[in-house]
Amino acid sequence: MAKKEYSFYPGCSSQKGATSSNYLTSTQSMCDVLDITLNEIPDWNCCGASIGYGGGGELPRLTLSARNIALSEQHNAGQEIVATCAACWLATREAKERFEHNKTLFDGAQQALAEGGLSLKNQTAVRHMVEVLIEDIGYEGIKSGVKKPLEGLKIAGYVGCQTNRPFGIVGESYENPLYLDKMIESVGADSVPTYEKKVQCCGGALAMSEPEKSQEMIKGIIEAAYDHGADMIATPCPLCQANVEIYQNDINAKYGTKFDMPVVYYSQLISIAYGKSAKESALDGQVVPAKKLEELANK
């Protein structure tokens, strides 16, 4: 497989010791096998995520992304920006497109960047890691590296919102995307293509400000996975992963449920299937341990 290089935007939550540090670890482990080099954008900053709007307003928020794109264009010239986090991807791509269509905003951002000695060309594609896997590697490509097929595992693919909307993956529908199911099948596991909560919102950033409302939705997401007999949930989004995984105790306490549903990243599935260890695949980063996956990794 030809070597591929991308300008990598890991985002705040993927940093060491942050809530999705396991995403970063497993991504690196996965890319290692796929011969993908991720060149981190030097000195990248936060994208503002989906909650920053209330503090920053339009231009300051978009300027955050403008700075990242400018830095990428300066240091990783010619490389497409790839993000693993849905919000990072969304914010950056949205900023790029807004600048394309709105000259006032573009000029404003440019003016602001100049203060920090930066300049925006805005000519860099902004992609999600999932797009890289599907479009640049392909399902067959993913499959070809599998050493330990995840046989016997039934995994509900939970796509969530922002990996899926408003941009989504080319050729997939907003309501019933199938790419995650196909990826799950590519690594030898069983998918749940009829999983009806696959694009249900988990509450996103409102998990912090409106926990009751958010947890009610999370409950539905987990319940449906149980209904379909899933062993675990897999997702491409750090916020989805965290929200669906870490509040299970709270939900159990409130609703009397007995949830113990592991929630993992697709990158962890691929990493394990590629023969990487549980640690390399950051399974130690699970709050709800993914025991079946660990067993498989240790085989």
């Binding site: 900053n45 920053g56 307003g57 339009e58 231009l59 300051p60 978009l62 300027t63 955050l64 700075r67 404003g108 951002a109 003016q111 602001a112 960047l113 100049a114 203060e115 920090g116 000695g117 930066l118």
Partner: peptide, 13 residues
């Protein structure tokens, strides 16, 4: 540099 950039953006806003 970051602070300067965002400050400017805030001014424009």
């Amino acid at each position: 540099g970051f602070q300067k950039i965002i400050k400017k953006a805030q001014e424009i806003e």
